[in-house]
Deep mutational scan, measured.
Amino acid sequence: HRQALGERLYPRVQAMQPAFASKITGMLLELSPAQLLLLLASEDSLRARVDEAMELII
């Protein structure tokens, strides 16, 4: 289940942060499945989480 969510998330994360897409997707997969579904449904929520992840990385 998580694998399938990751496969759906990755291209969207890659479009926002290509250099760190794998790392960010891995970080996002730590969230609950319900939270992941919310990110897939909301571009704004996904962008906010990706921005948060980038702050942790750099």
Rank of each mutant, 00 (worst) to 15 (best):
A15N: 08
R47I: 06
P33H: 14
I57A: 02
T25P: 00
E55I: 10
R12L: 15
A15V: 10
L36A: 02
E7I: 07
I58C: 06
Q17D: 03
M27W: 06
R12I: 14
A53E: 04
P33V: 14
V50M: 02
V50Q: 00
E30A: 09
A48Y: 08
D44P: 06
Y10K: 05
L31N: 04
S42W: 05
L5W: 08
D44Q: 11
E30K: 07
S22E: 14
L38R: 09
A21I: 01
Q14I: 12
S45E: 12
L46S: 00
S45G: 09
G26R: 11
A15K: 07
A53D: 01
L46M: 04
M16I: 14
A48H: 08
L31S: 05
L39T: 05
L28I: 06
E30Q: 09
M54S: 03
V50W: 01
L36Q: 05
L28F: 04
A41T: 11
L9S: 01
A53H: 05
Q35N: 11
E30H: 08
E7C: 09
L37H: 10
P18L: 02
K23T: 12
G6T: 10
Q17G: 03
Q14V: 13
R12W: 08
T25K: 02
L39F: 04
L31G: 04
M27P: 00
A4G: 09
L39I: 12
G26E: 15
R49E: 06
Q14A: 15
M16W: 07
L38H: 13
L37K: 09
Q3K: 12
A19R: 10
L31R: 03
S45D: 14
E52H: 10
L9W: 02
A34P: 09
S45H: 13
T25V: 15
R47K: 10
S32E: 13
R8S: 13
M16V: 08
T25C: 07
R49Y: 15
P11K: 13
R12C: 06
Q17T: 08
A48W: 05
L29N: 02
D44K: 09
E7D: 11
Y10T: 03
E7L: 04
G26N: 15
L31M: 10
A34N: 12
E55W: 10
L56S: 11
S45N: 12
K23V: 15
P11L: 08
Q14C: 08
K23R: 14
D44G: 08
L36E: 01
S42H: 11
V50L: 03
S32K: 07
L28W: 02
V13S: 01
E55V: 14
A41K: 10
D44H: 08
H1N: 14
L28E: 00
E55L: 12
G6R: 12
L28V: 01
A41Y: 07
E43I: 05
I58Q: 12
L5H: 04
P18A: 04
I57Y: 03
I58R: 11
A4Y: 07
E52P: 00
I57H: 02
A41N: 12
Q3R: 10
Q14R: 14
L28A: 00
L46G: 00
L36M: 05
S42G: 05
Q35T: 10
G26D: 15
F20Q: 06
E52G: 05
L31H: 05
Q35K: 09
A48C: 07
L37Q: 10
Q3E: 14
L5M: 11
L31V: 03
L56T: 12
F20D: 04
Q35G: 06
A48D: 07
G6L: 15
R2K: 15
R47D: 01
L46A: 00
L29P: 00
Y10N: 03
L39Y: 03
A21T: 04
E7P: 06
V50E: 02
R8T: 11
R2M: 15
E52S: 07
L28Y: 01
P11W: 08
M16E: 04
Q35P: 02
D51I: 09
L5F: 12
L56E: 11
D44I: 09
P33G: 08
I57R: 02
H1D: 15
R8M: 13
S22M: 14
A4S: 12
L5Y: 06
S45P: 02
E55K: 12
R8N: 10
V50H: 00
M27A: 04
D44W: 02
M16H: 06
H1E: 15
A4D: 12
E52V: 07
R49H: 11
R8Q: 15
A19C: 07
P33Q: 15
Q17F: 13
G6C: 10
E52F: 07
M16G: 02
M27S: 02
P11Y: 10
Q17P: 01
A21E: 00
L31P: 00
E7V: 08
I24Q: 00
A15Y: 05
F20W: 11
E30T: 08
G6V: 15
G26P: 07
R47G: 04
K23D: 07
H1V: 15
A53L: 15
L5G: 02
R8V: 15
I24N: 00
A15L: 10
L29Y: 02
E7M: 04
S22A: 11
M54A: 08
A34S: 08
R12G: 05
Q14E: 15
S42N: 15
V13C: 04
E55P: 01
L5S: 03
Q17S: 10
F20Y: 14
M54W: 06
E7F: 02
L29T: 04
R8A: 14
L31Q: 04
I58T: 09
L38A: 13
L9T: 02
G26I: 11
A4Q: 14
L56W: 09
E30V: 06
A41G: 07
M27D: 02
D44T: 09
G26M: 13
L39N: 01
T25G: 02
I57M: 06
L40Q: 02
G6W: 15
P11E: 14
P11D: 15
T25W: 07
T25D: 00
L39D: 04
L39M: 09
D44Y: 03
L5N: 04
L9P: 01
E55G: 11
G26F: 10
P33K: 08
M16R: 03
E43A: 08
E52D: 08
P11M: 08
L40T: 03
P18F: 03
P11T: 13
Q17M: 13
L36N: 01
L39P: 00
I24L: 05
Q3H: 09
R49Q: 11
L31T: 04
D51H: 09
R12M: 15
E30L: 07
A41M: 14
L46C: 02
A19W: 05
A41H: 11
I24D: 00
R2I: 15
K23M: 11
A48S: 10
E43P: 09
A48P: 03
Q3I: 07
A19H: 14
R8C: 07
M27Q: 04
E30F: 05
A34Q: 10
A19P: 03
L5D: 04
A41S: 12
L28P: 00
R49K: 12
A48N: 09
E30I: 05
E55M: 12
A19E: 15
I58V: 11
L56F: 13
S45V: 12
V50N: 00
L31Y: 06
L9C: 03
D51Q: 14
L38S: 11
E43R: 05
A34E: 15
Q17R: 06
V13A: 02
R12S: 06
L29S: 04
L29F: 03
L40I: 08
R49G: 07
L37N: 13
S45L: 14
T25Q: 04
G26C: 07
L46T: 01
H1Q: 15
M27V: 05
L38G: 12
M54F: 10
A34F: 08
L38Y: 08
Q3M: 06
D44A: 11
L37Y: 10
D44R: 07
M27H: 04
P18N: 04
A15G: 08
A19V: 13
F20G: 02
M16K: 03
L39V: 11
R49P: 01
S32W: 06
A48Q: 11
I24P: 00
A53T: 09
L37D: 14
S32Q: 10
V13H: 01
F20H: 12
L28K: 04
R12N: 05
L36I: 13
A41I: 09
R49V: 12
L40Y: 03
A21W: 02
E52C: 08
